[in-house]
Write a protein that binds this DNA or RNA. Structure first.
Length: 458
RNA sequence: GGCGACAUCGCCAAGUGGUAAGGCUAAGGUCUGCAAAAUCUUCAUCCCCGGUUCGAAUCCGGGUGUCGCCUCCA
């Protein structure tokens, strides 16, 4: 298994710290709003990472945090005129709803930042005591000059950061690149007692403290969106290195951004799509296919045409699955005749999660399933492997449910097909075609196959 | 200004030294009463210029273009 490590900027052979186990952490949402389609890409990608590691036999401990205390949450609380904790609660359950709708598994742990306040205070105090951080008017900052190596993860130099035109002015900081660990509470804001007075922790500490608690440091994989590389992950790693004398994680993975019609998604451009809005228009598997059809590190464009293509591609798989008995096929043991496909699929996935290439193998299998000139036992075998390999990417989580409309369960359609076949037998084409056309108008498509007439909803 | 990514058929997208996967679309054939589905066939020399090499989409240099991070952000 090779994975591109943002830290070394190279593809590296993945070696778990502990044999047979993967300990991974991916930055989750700040729960101040519903998450958008770009967030969904990252969440879904790490879901695939988790699924695939499990598929090849690893025991995966996957932690995804919930940032439930943050400036943005406070701002949202003021806007909704409720307490900050209410805002967090509301969007945590919304997060989990949307996550489930996208077919993303529940992570092993979903720690909330507010459950770790004490540990974070202790951690920050230790940084202060060891000279890596300092207090200023109730705020605590991490001092980037206090130890060597700040910037090593993201490949930046402290001098360059200062030279950067837009480093915020903050006279309280010793170095403009210093970042906040603890923030003094203004009246009315959520607050916790600390050695520096009442306040709340900064964003960069929670991941260090929670990952240490739930995974141990260092752990195998740390991931997030590409924008998190700097400053968030850099800052996390700096804290870990300062106190734990260790990198926080061995491998750092970053998912590329999603653009809307070629432009960056932003509220001001009004091209902002929530995941739940997208799911009203498209099936979750369409979205999954769309994400996985391009390599995770590349930027991806969101537009109606691409989603329409993805929709057709997924339908292609279900066309194949509708031609076989899923229960029967699922019980099959895949034999060596299919090993070529399996090897190809795994080779693609194990080359830095080349999902686009892996999907090509799924199409090959789909083609075999649909090909009536292929031996029936081989068609079933191909279908079995299609379910299995597709499943490792999170596809086909409930194919029976999805294909229900395609089975002859609805008596009226069955009856009409019977009538049509009777007309066909008498060569009364105008009547048989009328039935087919009328049904098509209702979104029901008939197909005459060697096994009889089948139908699906489009 | 600093750091980085990308540029492959009409569209999407793999490929990182050995002669261009796959999907969507399109055209034609087979099958079909006609369709649909299936199936077969056809459709690119890889942004430009130079270099390295027996050989480059793939490596190096220089352009051009697009994008991201450096500020909360997946």
């Amino acid at each position: 298994m090779k994975i591109y490590n943002s830290y070394t900027r190279k593809k590296e052979e993945f070696k778990p710290i502990e044999e047979g186990k993967v300990r991974m952490y991916a930055c989750g949402p700040t729960v101040y709003n519903y998450f958008h389609i770009g967030n969904a890409r990252t969440f879904m990608f790490f879901d695939v990472v988790k699924r695939y590691f499990e598929f090849i036999g690893y025991d995966v401990n996957y932690v995804q945090n919930l940032t439930d205390i943050d400036d943005k949450i406070i701002a949202q609380a003021i806007e909704e005129d409720v307490k900050a904790s209410k805002v967090a609660e509301k969007y945590i359950s919304a997060f989990n709803e949307d996550r489930a709708k996208l077919g993303i598994d529940t992570p092993t742990h979903q720690p909330k930042a507010t459950k770790y306040i004490k540990e974070m205070i202790r951690f920050i105090k230790e940084l202060v005591d060891n000279g890596f951080a300092y207090e200023q008017n109730g705020d605590v900052y991490f001092s980037v000059d206090s130890f060597k190596g700040y910037g090593s993860l993201s490949g930046r130099k402290v001098e360059d950061l200062i030279a950067g035109a837009r480093v915020a002015e903050n006279t309280a900081k010793k170095n403009p690149a210093d970042f906040t660990l603890w923030k003094d509470a203004k009246p009315g804001e959520p607050e916790w007692g600390s050695p520096w007075g009442k306040g709340r922790p900064g964003w960069h500490t929670e991941c260090v403290v929670m990952s240490k608690d739930l995974l141990g440091v260092p752990f195998d994989i740390h991931g997030g969106g590409t924008d998190l590389l700097f400053p968030h992950h850099e800052n996390e790693n700096a804290q870990a290195k300062a106190l734990y004398h260790s990198e926080l994680a061995k491998v750092w993975m970053h998912v590329g951004f999603l653009n809307i019609d070629g432009e960056k998604m932003s509220k001001s451009l009004k091209n902002f799509f929530l995941a739940r809005e997208v799911l009203e228009k498209y099936d979750s598997e369409t979205v999954r296919f769309y994400f996985l059809s391009k390599h995770y590190r590349s930027p991806i464009d969101y537009n109606a045409e691409i989603l329409a293509e993805s929709e057709k591609a997924v339908a292609n798989f279900y066309d194949a699955l509708s031609m076989i008995d899923i229960k029967e096929v699922r019980a099959l043991t895949v034999d060596d005749s299919m090993s070529k496909y399996e090897e190809e699929f795994n080779a693609a996935m194990q080359d830095d999660f080349n999902t686009a290439k892996a999907i090509a193998v799924l199409f090959d299998l789909s083609k075999s399933v649909k090909n009536f000139s292929v031996e029936e036992s081989d068609r079933k075998m191909a279908a079995s492997l299609l379910l299995k390999l597709g499943g490792s990417l999170g596809f086909f989580q409930n194919p029976e449910e999805k294909l229900k409309s395609g089975e002859s369960s609805e008596e009226l359609v069955k009856l009409l097909i019977k009538c049509r076949n009777a007309f066909k037998k008498e060569k009364m084409w105008q009547y048989s075609d009328m039935i087919r056309d009328e049904l098509k108008g209702l979104g029901i498509v008939l197909m005459d196959t060697p096994d009889g007439t089948k139908w699906t909803r489009k």
